[in-house]
């Protein structure tokens, strides 16, 4: 094994100092808006337990949905869209839900609606499209169907109509939510449909 070293930049040692002093235990602000990373100007990747909102032409994407559920909400008139990738049905009363609301369907949908509202959408004009919630495994007592059921309940309570869905079965899905407001769902075999 070799390891050759050289000092290319004989600068003074850089001093890393405290800047905002926030504690690690604090809720990560990025998690509230999803912590989603814009990977190019036109595409925003939403990870597991994250959400993101856009009011421009960006395409919101989330991949590898199994039992997780994707909830896509749009206010077409305001041109504001948001996408949630939630993992579990119920976060209310869970201490971790405050730090990571998008992990759960109930707290996630509430956060998504609030974020859309902040971005200029009118919650009364929102329409929902839902994908995922597959029953991938017999081992894991129907977490997918429970996610889908919870989405229905939470959207119903919020007065948001579900205009289309592609849920259940035992199939993984990847989704794209573009500026036309349609949700493009792609399965593992490459089959795609827009809902």
């Amino acid at each position: 094994m070799t390891r050759s070293l050289s000092d290319d930049r004989p600068d003074e040692p850089a001093d890393r100092t405290e800047s905002d002093g926030d504690a690690v235990a604090d809720a990560d602000p990025a998690a509230v808006t999803g912590g989603a990373v814009p990977d190019d100007p036109g595409r925003i990747k939403v990870g597991v337990g994250e959400l993101a909102v856009t009011s421009d032409d960006a395409v919101l994407t989330t991949s590898g949905l199994g039992s997780c559920v994707a909830v896509a909400l749009v206010d077409e008139r305001a041109g504001v869209r948001g996408l949630l990738h939630a993992m579990l049905p119920a976060g209310e009363e869970k201490p971790t839900a405050a730090a990571r609301p998008a992990k759960y369907v109930d707290t996630g949908v509430d956060s998504l609606i609030a974020a859309l509202d902040d971005a200029g959408a009118d919650p009364r004009r929102l329409e929902a499209r839902v994908a995922g919630g597959a029953e991938m495994l017999d081992l894991t007592d129907a977490v997918g169907p429970r996610n889908v059921e919870r989405v229905g309940e939470v959207l119903d309570a919020a007065g948001v109509p579900v205009v289309a869905s592609d849920v259940g079965d035992a199939v993984g899905r990847t989704v794209r939510f573009g500026p036309d407001g349609r949700l493009v769902v792609r399965a593992a075999d490459g089959f795609e449909r827009a809902i």
Partner: peptide
């Protein structure tokens, strides 16, 4: 347990396990 066969998008196959532990 007995094995359960999976054949799908990699991330999708493991997501229910992650959800249960979460």
């Amino acid at each position: 347990s007995p094995p359960e066969f999976v054949h799908d998008i990699g991330a999708s196959t493991i997501s229910p396990l992650v959800a249960k532990l979460s």
